[in-house]
Design a protein around this nucleic acid. Structure first.
Length: 887
RNA sequence: GGACGAUUAGCUCAGUUGGUUAGAGCGCUACGUUGACAUCGUAGAGGUCGGCGGUUCGAAUCCGUCAUCGUCCACCA
């Protein structure tokens, strides 16, 4: 688009070419890079690193759009804005994807071996990292690629080691044999939050365990009868009179014939079931605890794939669920299982594989959470807490951290940070070290074996806000940009990520990793369902961009709703945003088309501004103030709406229309002034809109006469409220003009004046001020109301036999001339009168209320009085017209 | 069993210290080729703000309660 070629500018905005043009321009100009400028206040956001498992989805698009809006706005506002990109190796997810890919080739990871397999995953990572970067570019994200990081890169791996070693040395990481959540499908341990509990219709199996002395039996119940093979006790409540005499006796465990004791423990609830519980320390977390209290044996009866092991005797090799069926049948045959009830209960499933999680006794690494959580709670209850937006999520965070349990951080995977622990095969010593070691520090033996497990992915993600800036080194970036300002993420990973970043940062950097956490909701499908691969209802952001443009998608996502709430994806809304882009395009096209012979030197608003000029400048000031304030409080929707209304309603519908008489008129001074105002307002508006719609705003902005070459709107100054351009009275004056124009239109429409027939309107202003304004506005009114068919004159005398309309400040008369329907006009006036009467009544009632007059703020009361007078005046005029018409 | 969220026009959603006649977009109706835009313009219809109670001069907004939907948390065998 150039000024002297405007006739050829298409009337439709074509996003494709524009977007392809500007992203490379921004990159090459280095506009996205933060310069660690000590004269500026830093503003930092680290991107939630997407998993390298595949393409970005519409949730990423929402989340990234909001971060980009914040970053672009702050950059323009003069902050040293850094938005740091990066990706997550996503251990279990990525490994599963690569294994799936290999499976199609008929090979397993075991066929390849650890080293070869990890190589394959790096290949995969390289491919998807490229795709993700392309997608970021398509969305227009202003990321500082010079600082891009990956959770498995060298620096971050060093940070992971450092954290691991320090926590270990502090006694906050330990290794031990505990009950953990085991995923038999992926054959790895999981942390508590990687387990999803789903309601499942199962069964409660009632069993009779015979007492050894033959004096009878004790009843127990279980939902997992196959675990009975690992029972090492039966427990009852110590105060339970029914069982007091049995405590200490032995029971013969059916099938195995093993003798196990009856013990007493508070944990048992007397009221539930039979009051007696079978205890399986190796397959249930509570039983495990109880086992420790009573020194019970731990009998593991399954292997890592969920099959029964050699402790299961004749059931060895059976899958746990097949074993359940078989063992139930056998127990029924023996009369041991005497009752099966339907039982609905919560069953844990692996968040990744979907497999039923098995509580499983296993040697794993843990983070001791007590001291870390305590610090985090203390901090959050103090002065410098993390501000959650919306703040209700703080409660969710606090509740979780207050009830946290130790974090199982080891995973039996190959893709990830390998645990830096070595076991000496000679002396048995375990060594934990920052760097790889080749000899046992204790005995000097070189027969060392590194722990084969890797760390939970979230262990490295937890360090993200500071590891990406160079920690553990005291880098300049770390000093300047840390702590970060805002973290933008979904509520689904508050526990997985946000909480862990906070306590980790407090431990290692002694401050919160970010000041604000902006929580976004989910983007759901049009029916409100969660988008999922299995439903096939996902929306690909690239497809949205392809069809409607990145700016439209961004605007739609950002204004879709308020943060923290889910939003539904509707194509109609993208279309509406696209139409908005088109509206901006055409309004700008109009401005540029009318700039012939106008250059930057001509830009001058010091002349005599008209009411409409003052009005649009005042409205611009309002919009600048609103958008700035709303973005600061993360109210993207309101900020977007404010801009939308300003551009569409004020600028396009009114100001541009009213600018036409000047632009087409023969007064060069007036024309130049109008051109100046248009250029100024457009420039400022584009800047305000730029964070939302970066591409189209850059494209247009580059064509404004005042824009200097070689720069970018991206680094243009953020608009400031200009007090010199504040004309409060213009709002009211413009109101009169708008009222008159609307009313004239209405009269024409409602009275159904035949087309082509010229009618004469007379407008009688109330006061001189109104007269002048309307005189000035005559041209506008004609233009707005079809000049071919309308004649307007301002009159100070009331002509005879007229119909009229009333606006505040003026009356509008139309000679009858036999061309209008008097009955219709009377009914219109009746309607108007009725409305006014209702208003007058409402106001009077309010004003006669002693309580209101006495207690409401005087400003409110005054406003109400003024309103009452206004309504009353209009009502009287309307009534007078009705009388006149009837008579 | 706890906690939280949602409930406003046919649909999707705003409405931030309680204060004009509760708004927008889409959809709908009627009209419109007016020198930026039919991805448009003008006019219009459409809501007792989920129910009930309370506080207040005044409630979509604050409090209580109920209902429906949704989400999260919780070791009951």
């Amino acid at each position: 688009m150039t000024t002297n070629q405007t006739k050829e500018i298409p009337t439709k905005y074509e996003p494709g070419a524009t977007e392809a043009k500007w992203y490379p321009y921004w990159l090459e100009g280095g506009f996205f890079n933060a310069h660690r400028d000590s004269s500026k206040t830093p503003f930092t956001i680290v991107i939630p690193p997407p998993n390298v498992t595949g393409n970005l989805h519409i949730g990423h698009a929402l989340n990234n759009t909001l971060q980009d809006i914040l970053t672009r706005a702050k950059r323009m506002q003069g902050f040293d804005a850094l938005w740091l990109p990066g990706m997550d190796h996503a251990g279990i997810a990525t490994q599963a994807r690569v294994e799936g890919m290999l499976k199609q080739e008929g090979i397993s990871r075991y066929d390849l071996g650890r080293e070869k397999f990890v190589e394959k995953v790096w290949e995969w990572k390289g491919k998807y990292a490229d795709i993700i970067r392309q997608q970021w570019a398509k969305m227009g994200l202003s990321l500082d690629y010079s600082r891009e990081r990956f959770t498995l890169d060298e620096g971050l791996s060093r940070a992971v080691r450092e954290v691991f070693v320090r926590l270990y040395e502090k006694g906050l990481i330990y290794r031990g044999k505990y009950i953990i959540n085991w995923d038999p499908a992926t054959r790895t341990a999981l942390s508590d939050i990687e387990v999803e509990y789903k309601e499942v219709k199962g069964a409660l199996y009632h069993l009779r365990y015979p007492l050894k002395d033959g004096s009878g039996y004790i009843e127990v119940a279980t939902t997992r009868p196959e675990t009975m093979l690992g029972d090492t006790a039966v427990a009852v409540h110590p105060e339970d009179d029914r069982f007091k005499h049995l405590v200490g006796k032995m029971v013969v465990l059916p099938i195995t014939g093993r003798e196990i004791p009856i013990i007493a423990d508070d944990y048992v609830e007397k009221e539930f079931g039979s009051g007696a519980v079978k205890i399986t320390p190796a397959h249930d977390p509570n039983d495990f605890e109880m086992g420790l209290r009573h020194n019970l044996e731990q009998f593991l009866v399954m292997d890592e794939t969920g099959k029964m092991n050699d402790n299961a005797g004749i059931y060895q090799g059976l899958d746990r669920f097949d074993c359940r069926k078989k063992i139930v049948k056998d127990l029924q045959d023996q009369g041991i299982c005497f009752k099966i009830e339907e039982h609905i209960h919560q069953v844990g499933h692996s968040e990744r594989s979907g497999a039923v999680v098995e509580p499983y006794l296993s040697t794993q690494w843990f983070v001791k959470m007590g001291p870390l959580a305590e610090e985090a709670i203390k901090k959050q209850r103090g002065e410098n807490k993390v501000q959650f937006v919306p703040d209700r999520f703080e409660k969710i965070y606090l509740h979780w951290i207050e009830n946290i349990r130790d974090w199982c951080i080891s995973r039996q995977l190959w893709w990830g940070h390998r645990i830096p622990a070595w076991y000496c095969e000679s002396c048995g010593e375990m060594s934990v070290a920052r760097v790889d070691i080749t000899a046992c520090p204790k005995c000097g033996s070189e027969k060392l074996k590194q722990d084969s497990d890797v760390l939970d992915t979230w262990f490295s993600s937890a360090l993200w806000p500071f590891s990406t800036l160079g920690w553990p080194d005291e880098t300049e970036d770390l000093k300047h940009f840390y702590p970060t300002d805002v973290l933008v993420t979904g509520y689904d990973i508050i526990f997985f990520w946000v909480a862990r970043m906070i306590f980790t940062a407090l431990e290692f950097t002694e401050q919160n990793p970010f000041k604000n956490v902006l929580i976004t909701g989910l983007v759901r499908d049009a029916e409100g369902r969660k988008m999922s691969k299995s439903l096939g209802n996902g929306v690909d952001p690239m497809e949205v961009i392809e069809q409607y443009g990145a700016d439209a998608m961004r605007f739609m996502l950002a204004t879709g709703n308020t943060p923290g709430n889910d939003q539904r994806f509707r194509w109609e809304r993208v279309e509406a945003a696209r139409n908005f882009a088109n509206k901006i395009w055409n309004a700008s096209r109009f401005v540029l088309m009318n700039l012939e012979g106008f250059s930057a030197q001509d830009l001058d608003m010091s002349g005599e501004l008209g009411t409409t000029d003052k009005w649009i400048l005042t409205r611009l000031n309002d919009t600048i103030a609103d958008v700035t304030r709303l973005l600061d409080s993360f109210e993207f929707g309101e900020a977007g709406r404010s801009l939308y209304n300003f551009i569409w309603d004020d600028l396009c519908d009114w100001y541009i229309e009213m600018a036409k008489p000047h632009l087409y008129g023969d007064n060069p001074e007036a024309k130049k002034l109008t051109q100046s105002v248009l250029c100024h307002v457009l420039d400022q508006t584009l800047r305000l809109l730029h964070p939302f719609m970066p591409f189209i705003t850059e494209e247009i902005w580059q064509h404004l006469p005042q824009t200097k070459t070689g720069t970018s709107i991206l680094v243009a100054d953020w608009p400031q409220v200009n007090v010199a351009n504040q004309y409060p009275e213009s709002i009211k004056q413009m109101g009169l003009l708008m009222d008159v124009i609307r009313t004239v239109r209405n009269i024409r429409a409602e009275m159904n004046v035949p087309l082509g027939k010229k009618i004469e309107l007379m407008i009688k202003p109330d006061q001189e001020e109104s007269f002048r304004l309307l005189e000035q506005g005559e041209e506008y009114i004609r233009r707005f109301c079809n000049p071919e068919k309308l004649m307007i004159s301002l009159e100070l005398e009331i002509p005879e036999k007229v119909v009229s309309a009333v606006v505040t400040g003026a009356e509008i008369y139309l000679p009858l001339a036999g061309l209008i329907d008097i009955d219709k006009e009377i009914s219109r006036l009746e309607k108007e009168a009725a409305q006014l009467e209702a208003e007058v009544e409402r106001v009077n009632k309010k004003l006669s209320n002693q309580g209101f007059v006495a207690k409401a703020p005087s400003k409110v009361v005054e406003e109400e009085k003024a309103k009452g007078l206004d309504y009353q005046e209009k009502l009287e005029k309307v009534r007078a017209r009705m009388v006149e018409l009837r008579g």
